[in-house]
Design a protein around this nucleic acid. Sequence first.
DNA 1: TGTGCCTGACTGACTGGTCAGTCAGCTTGT
DNA 2: ACAAGCTGACTGACCAGTCAGTCAGGCACA
Lengths: 195, 195
Amino acid sequence: MEIPEKKQRILQAAVEVFSENGFHQTTIDQIAERAGVGKGTVYLYFESKQNLFYAIIQGGLALVVRGATMLAQAEPNPKQRIALLIERHLAIMLKHVRRMKMIMQQGVPQQMHDLLPEMRQHGKEYQALYVAALEEGISQGLFRPHDSNIVAIALIGGLNQVGMQLAEHEITTSVADCQQQLMQLILAGIEKEGN
Amino acid sequence: MEIPEKKQRILQAAVEVFSENGFHQTTIDQIAERAGVGKGTVYLYFESKQNLFYAIIQGGLALVVRGATMLAQAEPNPKQRIALLIERHLAIMLKHVRRMKMIMQQGVPQQMHDLLPEMRQHGKEYQALYVAALEEGISQGLFRPHDSNIVAIALIGGLNQVGMQLAEHEITTSVADCQQQLMQLILAGIEKEGN
DNA sequence: TGTGCCTGACTGACTGGTCAGTCAGCTTGT
DNA sequence: ACAAGCTGACTGACCAGTCAGTCAGGCACA
């Protein structure tokens, strides 16, 4: 199951160019050139431009979700678990800005209609991790009662926005401070009074 | 300053088609057909496809920001003001799903490099409304001290995410309930203990 | 060791289709 | 007759995807 070196190079180049220019502004020629391979070689490893794009997004999302799931399983305390998830979310966004941009650019799905269900599935799974933690917290009396779905969605949305702006250097606050601020905000928002 | 009827029709059609298919999947022919005008007419009123796209986004954003600014000016109480802004944010997202999708699709700017500064400007202005309310709240001793920039960014991100999912019917909760949940979450998150 | 055959990974010039933008000419009103 | 508003056939650029051809390196046989 060795991944050929050229395929790796193509993937790397594709991440770069796609994230810089977006899907439609990117040409296969650009990717091939950046990877230092012939155009034909790209089609040797990937069926189409779309396919290449998906290979990258899918791979990234799958990894993120799997990692987060493991993290979540290892921490029984809901409060701690949410803290860990938040920390990890921001860390990953910073580490993989390019890939994240690609996914965000995707924005509202719908045009990439066919292959998208899987992408949504990953999103749902990820969201479910937060929902589970929130619900446990509620039933354990740690958090005040709330609609855990909505809170999870808002939470993830907030994390994404902060992560993007951090990555774009539009926030001067340090990453650690950001994390702390968000944690405070969220925990104060859901914790039972007099915690 | 009469706006010609055909120009209106073109704008309307453009909003529809752009939001359905995204910028690149949309052709001027489609827009012209939907508007019931000739292709040339589109170029009579708009310099280019990009220009048309921007006219829509800019117009929308400018309206939203102006409206929110007026709303904010009319309410001196920071807590109330934030509540109003949140309510309005969700309401507008629901009312203008199509336009919102267009903007979101835009996602991370950067490819539309030239004309974008204005768009960012609007974003900054909008964010500033929340920041101002938060800071006032802190200095009045209503909210606990926090980094109002980060809180504002997270807040807007959360609102967008929830708004989008509401609009996409991926949330079963009613709009009013959503609003209430978010308000509780946020106010609890920033309020001084024992409010 | 040398030679000739083979294979398949790789290449890039080419094709076919798409679409933004143009412009010659039509229509309608005065 | 003229102008203003409008039209849609046309053009040129662009690009995804193809495929005929190249060539490095492996293998067999002497």
